[in-house]
Computed example of a mutant assay.
Amino acid sequence: MSETERLTVGALISVLVLVAPGFLLHEAPRFPGSLAGGLLGIAGASLFVLLLIYSLVKRSTWVRVRVSKYVSLRALLSFHVYAGVVGALLGILHSGHAYRSPLGIALVVAMLTVVLSGFVGRYHLAQLGTDLREQRERLGVLRARFDQIAAEAAAHHGGAAIVSPGPGLRALALLVSGDGVTVSGTPVLRLVGAVADLEHAIGRREAVKRALSRWTVLHIAAALVLYPLLALHIWNGIYFGLRWLR
């Protein structure tokens, strides 16, 4: 996952979120049935159908072995992400912001849920996991330094006693002699504050990660709703369109 890819997809998501409620400013009820509107709809639906390629390759060993000779799973995932966002954007433009039928509204909601849940899982949770790993590494370094200072204080500073902090620093006690709060050139209170702040930040990120850990369930459930709605929408367009031509 490159920074360029994340920024590009994030920009497309932002455009999609801004364009979706366009009915507040503009409606074009006849646009979905026009030539331009129809082409946008066909292009968007085609991209959503192509999204299934990644799911098929990922879940079928037989298919993955044969497809991986020509294209990597990572490349397919990137296509999956871009096709989903662009397909949703084309679908919103195809609607002309005329959200009047229950089918159309349900389709738009399912489409946006699929795209947004996929974005959260692909980029936000991945970045959250990276941040957590880095913070835990920094916390380990700070705790190791704290333990070293505690040992030095116990050996060389008879008037100072440092009790090593337990989880969350709830059991921390710090008694410092008149010599100050610096041990071996390290400000002890500042070090303790850094450990406490880092533990608090890790706790908040872990809570967010747990809350968003079910994104895959939401993503798949929304997709299972999306494709039947899309098929019904296409069937309605063909049926009533041919009927109108007669």
Rank of each mutant, 00 (worst) to 15 (best):
G37F: 11
L40S: 13
V57I: 04
R100T: 13
A98V: 09
E27F: 03
V49N: 04
H97N: 14
K69C: 01
L77M: 13
L52A: 14
V57P: 00
H94E: 10
V86S: 03
S46D: 00
S60P: 02
L73G: 08
L56R: 12
L40E: 15
P32T: 09
G44A: 13
S55W: 00
F31T: 08
E27Y: 03
L25M: 13
F23T: 11
L24H: 12
S68W: 06
H97F: 13
F79M: 05
V17S: 11
V67N: 01
R59E: 09
Y54D: 04
A83Q: 13
G84T: 05
L25R: 05
V49K: 07
R64S: 09
A28M: 13
G91S: 10
A83I: 12
A45T: 10
A43R: 09
V81A: 11
Y54Q: 12
G84P: 01
G41D: 07
A36G: 14
S95L: 01
R64D: 06
L35F: 14
S34K: 09
L73C: 01
L77V: 02
H94Q: 10
V65L: 10
A88M: 06
L18F: 14
S55L: 03
F48M: 15
R74A: 02
L103V: 07
H80K: 00
G41K: 04
G37N: 12
R66I: 03
A43S: 13
I42F: 12
Y70V: 10
V19L: 08
L93I: 15
R59F: 03
L93W: 15
W62Q: 08
A28D: 14
S60L: 04
V57Y: 02
L40N: 12
P21C: 14
V17P: 15
L47C: 03
A36V: 15
G84D: 03
R100D: 15
S95E: 02
F23I: 07
G33K: 12
P102Q: 10
L35N: 05
L89I: 10
L56N: 07
F23P: 01
V63Q: 00
